[in-house]
Nucleic acid binder design. Structure first.
Length: 213
DNA sequence: AACTCGGGGCA
DNA sequence: TGCCCAGAGTT
């Protein structure tokens, strides 16, 4: 375990030099808007989400605004990002739940967030650290894949990997580490054809060791 | 555990 | 132009 933490620290150092700027894409005005944007981000990218949120939040910004919308109306606003019908339903239902059960405020606990429609582990974690600045380690497919290739985790499911990563990194670094692993996963440690030859983490990587040495 | 939703990006 | 990618819900 000590050895793993040393490795984690070195990887963190290399990645933080390579990706120095923290993600600012999730810079929304209210927890509710961040929640909506995060629900929208399922199965797509922040870039895509940002294309629709600026216009969207000009027109609708509070849970009350979304709770009254027809699915078709919202769907039309977000149709360029895919899965728009189901996402519209999730957001409208969640808005109503926030009003009806959570007194108009986005819930702050993981378990309550999970009760919302369209909110799973990853989305709930993002809301906790991005909207409420509390420790969470969102595990999306990039984090899952990259941390397993590196040998930072060997869990078979995201829950297990999340547990292992939380053991490995200091609490106040979870959010940043999540971003670094995502960047690295998108740009280098890609799902299909990873650019191992240009990867600065070769020395620490189980995947590289097993496939190229 | 497999299937569904739906676009954009890239070979 | 067809294949791959990215979460959550449903069956």
């Amino acid at each position: 375990m000590q050895l793993q933490q040393e490795k984690a620290k070195k990887i963190s150092g290399i990645l933080s030099e390579k990706y120095p700027v923290p993600e600012t894409a999730l810079d929304y005005k209210t927890p509710f808007q961040l929640l909506v944007a995060t629900i929208l981000s399922a199965q797509t990218t922040d870039t895509q989400v940002n294309k629709v949120t600026s216009d969207l939040f000009e027109k609708y910004s509070r849970p009350q605004d979304f709770a009254e919308l027809e699915v078709e109306t919202l769907s039309e606003e977000i149709k360029s990002i895919g899965l728009h019908r189901s996402k519209s339903e999730y957001i409208i239902k969640s808005s109503r739940m926030i009003i009806d059960i959570f007194e108009g405020e986005v819930p702050r606990s993981f378990d309550d967030l999970l009760k919302l429609n369209g909110v799973g582990r990853k989305t709930a974690s993002v809301v906790i650290y991005a909207a409420f600045s509390r420790p969470a380690f969102p595990v999306d497919t990039h984090v899952f894949r990259v941390s397993r290739r590196l040998g930072l985790a060997d869990g078979k499911n995201p829950e297990k990997v999340e547990e292992q990563l939380k053991e490995l990194f200091p609490e106040d670094d979870w959010g940043d580490m999540h971003h670094r692993l995502i960047y690295h996963g998108r740009e280098v440690c890609k799902a299909r054809s990873p650019d191992c030859s240009s990867c600065q983490l070769q020395d620490f990587c189980d995947y590289f060791k097993n496939n190229f040495k």
